[in-house]
Nucleic acid binder design. Structure first.
Lengths: 356, 356
DNA sequence: TGTTAGCACTCTCACCCATCGAGTGCTAAC
DNA sequence: GTTAGCACTCGATGGGTGAGAGTGCTAACA
């Protein structure tokens, strides 16, 4: 046994892998520490419980399992799950029937709307019995596609800014001046802005706005509105993530490990913090691959009891969003990974229409 | 004592009211059943604990207090809170400093934007240590103010619909036809729609769209887009509430009565159900007054352990929204009511600018 | 040399029981 | 009408105990 200590993370023989797998899958379904006898009874291992015990001890040495206390069964560690995900199992693809059903549902909902992302989150939550997360695809830098101004009352107008990838920003602008604002004037202002700012980013828009002539009444208003547009673009570019849609946080609450709710409360707090999610999503979006963060692998301490599985979608260099799930570390990884892969693939495919 | 049984909800004498008040206020701060001795010690009642016990027994007969078990102190019932709110205490207005601070914060945030309602929810949550709720003011029936179309690719356009009170709806429309769609064509279509649909509701828009000539290519597209617009307006009118912003659900989770989390989970489920909130908000918006729903007064069983305090804001007959808080029945009613009143009053005042 | 049976050992969990104390309701005196 | 006194109730606390699950080790076995 001492020999094994020397290779704590080396390749495991087939039998050890089978047993690790059995422990994890048993634990995932029962949420109870797994004993050697239970493994022999429920999985056809072909060896006695004593042998299984020896191997369990080795796996514990290697840091893949632990012991809540002496007389309890084994529980996977975060490293155990990691090894399981990377070397033992493959993602289980979503059944074809479910795939069809989901495609159908996405077809029913208004294309690329808010409901779309809600649906993604809801779907993920339902399929994995965890919390589902989805962010709209966000361009790296905003490009103005169109500006529109609608009079609200004599001094205020609603500014509508359409960005290249379909996002819309709205703001109320106050227009100071001696006279009441007419919609006709606003149309002129909007026309001017559309002409000068078409396809601008922050930098080019700034230059264009500087060129407006303060003495001309229409250009003067255009300048004010333009300054507001710049502010909106700046805010937009600065945020890594515009919004995160989530669903099924209740699913996570139902897991027995969160019965005390203290831990989960912290998770909720962390999720309310957009900066953190933004950062995480940013890192996933950049990588281009599915990312799995298991328990304590997460730098945030609040998240040490949960696992995040996130996958990007969209077009690298243009607009990227993320979908994923959040659940207890004790989750069915093959299914969750398969589901997240499918949904991100689907979003990818559907969003492609926009860039065709 | 038997005499008192005959008038269970009749007017209470001053001393009984003072004791009910003391029980409630003590219970609100300690979350522990209140005993007769504790009342004598902490509130200058001028009588002995035995006398207090007699009165507590009367209050219990009247249904205003209960007993978790024989040897425990008293706990207010929902009726107890109701009586307290209606006959014993008045709302405590928010301190002037706080009022100023909040006004300032609202001034900082983009007018009537999504952030605005988030701020309302956050403010309410922070001031009352409960969950804060806010819905944007929603007009009774949608009126079209402006239609805009922006080409996304050769077959798709982004439809932007601005409604009279400032709401914006977006959709992607697919335009079938032999030729690729040009932005110039879309501008013509949008122009036509703006001309014919200005200030329409569902009914008048339908008539106008029926009048389009299918043989003219621009009108044909306008008709397709118009049909989509009708669908959007229908959805909009059908929903009593467009969106509910909430914040501070964690505050409620922290209350000792929800430590087990089972009850709270149900509350969360109920809140996720928009139909329910819509209905509630609808009833409040119509009434024009602040509405307090204490525990089991709520028809939904899940909400039997929480109290809702909701107040409408906006212009009756035009657009109405609701702000409020959700907390455990054991909450500080005078402060919560004062806070909700202030915030709804502030929203009212600010929103008035839009209709000036 | 790996596998297995057997067994002592450890530790948690559920249960019981006694004790404590907070708080009540009632009675009798003031 | 108020109060002191007192018996009584009942949850909470804590120690003690037995059952059971599961381990680790040893020695025998193939």
């Amino acid at each position: 046994m001492a020999r094994r200590v020397r290779r704590p993370l080396g390749p495991l023989d087939i039998r050890s892998q089978a047993i690790l797998r059995a422990v994890i899958e048993e634990y995932v379904t029962t949420a109870q520490p797994v004993g050697s006898q239970a493994l022999v009874d429920r999985y056809g291992l072909g060896v006695s419980s004593a042998t299984v015990r020896n191997i369990l001890a080795e796996l514990e040495m290697a840091g893949l399992l632990t012991h809540p206390h002496t007389s309890a069964g084994r529980v996977p560690t975060d490293s155990g799950y990691r090894f399981y995900v990377e070397s033992i199992v493959d993602a289980v693809p979503l059944p074809a029937v479910e795939q069809l059903m989901i495609r159908h549902q996405f077809g029913q909902v208004e294309f690329a709307s808010e409901h779309w992302f809600r649906l993604a989150a809801t779907t993920l939550a339902g399929l994995t019995r965890s919390a589902g997360l989805a962010t709209p695809a966000k361009p790296r830098a905003a490009h103005i596609r169109r500006v529109d101004l609608v009079a609200v009352n004599e001094r205020m107008a609603s500014l509508i800014l359409v960005l290249r990838e379909g996002a819309i920003k709205q703001a109320i602008v106050t227009i100071e001046g001696p006279e009441a604002v007419e919609q006709a004037t606003l149309n002129q202002v909007a026309g001017l802005l559309n002409e000068r700012l078409n396809d601008s980013t922050v930098a080019s828009a700034e230059a264009a706005i500087d060129a407006f002539d303060e003495t001309d009444p229409v250009q003067r208003i255009a300048r004010r509105v333009g300054e507001r547009i710049i502010r909106i673009l700046r805010d937009y570019d600065a945020a890594a993530v515009e919004e995160v849609f989530s669903d099924g946080l209740l699913n996570v609450m139902e897991a027995p490990e969160f019965a005390q709710s203290d831990k989960l409360r912290q998770v909720f707090s962390a999720l309310e913090n957009r900066a953190y999610l933004g950062e995480l999503v940013g890192s996933v979006a950049g990588s281009g691959r599915i990312r799995i963060v298991i328990g304590a692998e997460n730098p945030r301490e609040e998240m040490h009891d949960v696992t995040l599985i996130l996958a990007p979608y969209g077009r690298p260099g243009r607009a990227l969003g993320v979908v994923g799930v959040l659940g207890p570390t004790r989750m069915s990884y093959p299914n969750a990974i398969g589901t997240v892969s499918f949904v991100s693939g689907l979003m990818n495919e559907l969003v492609d229409h926009l860039y065709a």
